[in-house]
């Protein structure tokens, strides 16, 4: 006696037939067109007034390599500072204390609301307002001695980054179910400890993709520090073309390195996302 239900006549059994492959003519046409356009652009670049020998010559020049190392160092340090400031500002923003809330909101408003290049120039030229800094009696120093291009770039980029990161962090913390916070409270945790041990670790999962994105943007934003004499790759490329007038060639050299760095960082970000997602999707039973 069969267990399967009986069915009506008139409908054939197609289970032996397979789907045919579609030729997709227009897709091939589109791809061919795009390749033609790209080839034309490549030809224009190759045949134009660009002296590619200069590009080759300076691609691995010592100052260029030093420059890209300085770029990466600054990007990493500024991002670290930005994350610390962002977490602190986000926590302050969600505080029941209106003073803390206002300070955090003011920080975000001010540093997101002014151009980054302006902030960098203000930090570098701080001595115009504060000729000496420090605590009178304890330690003072000339601002120009303390505010080196490195420090000015770090403060300018990091504090600016923090303003943006604080919004990402705040969104991440708000995305954590309120039940988590209540459960932490129920076992006697105070607000800050609950944030640190329970909410933030969970917020990290949501926060990693936008932070990874911001980091890639920051790598390129470091080029603005060239105007305060931080020797990152654009600054050093500029010095070369100031001497030999090969503007486009040297900018291509710098552009190549930026592209290379971002090409490496992008799959790294995906790896990082997947590793954090694994924490939430432990499916094995």
């Amino acid at each position: 006696m069969k267990a399967a239900p009986t069915v009506a006549e008139g409908f054939p059994d197609l289970s032996g037939m397979r789907l045919a492959r579609e030729p997709h003519w227009f897709r091939w046409l589109g791809a061919a067109l795009i390749i033609l356009v790209l080839a034309a652009i490549a030809r224009a670049f190759a045949g134009g007034q660009i002296e590619w020998s200069y590009v080759g010559r300076f691609l691995t020049a010592k100052v260029i390599l030093e420059g890209i190392v300085n770029t990466m160092v600054m990007a990493v340090l500024a991002m670290a500072l930005g994350i610390v400031l962002g977490v602190v500002a986000a926590i302050m923003r969600l505080s029941p204390n209106p003073v803390l809330r206002s300070v955090a909101a003011g920080y975000t408003w001010l540093f997101r609301g002014t151009p980054l290049i302006l902030q960098l120039l203000l930090w570098f030229n701080l001595a115009l307002v504060f000729p000496t800094i420090g605590i009178p009696g304890l330690w003072t120093a000339r601002a120009v001695d303390v505010m080196t291009p490195f420090l000015a770039a770090l403060l300018g980029l990091g504090i600016n980054q923090g303003a943006y990161t604080s919004e990402v962090m705040r969104a991440g913390m708000l995305s954590v179910d309120i039940g988590q916070y209540e459960a932490a409270q129920a076992i006697g945790m105070g607000r800050l400890r609950a944030l640190w041990r329970i909410i933030l670790p969970q917020a990290m999962r949501v926060v990693i993709p936008p932070i990874g994105n911001e980091f890639i943007g920051l790598v390129k934003a470091t080029s603005l520090a060239s105007v305060i004499q931080y020797p990152e790759v654009l600054h050093n490329a500029e010095n070369i073309y100031y001497a030999n007038s090969r503007v486009i060639e040297l900018l291509i050299v710098a552009g190549f390195w930026y592209l290379l760095v971002v090409s490496i960082l992008t799959p790294l970000q995906m790896l990082l996302e997947r590793r954090f997602a694994r924490g939430t999707m432990r499916l094995a039973r």
Binding site: D177, G179, Q180, E182, A183, A184, Q185, A186, I187, G188, M189, G190, I198, Q202, G279, T280
Partner: peptide, 18 residues
């Protein structure tokens, strides 16, 4: 927080720390 230590709460949606 100290007063809360005297009670334990079990939630409808468990709220375990994932």
């Amino acid at each position: 927080g100290r007063q809360r230590l005297k009670t334990g709460m079990v939630f409808q949606r468990f709220n375990l720390f994932p």
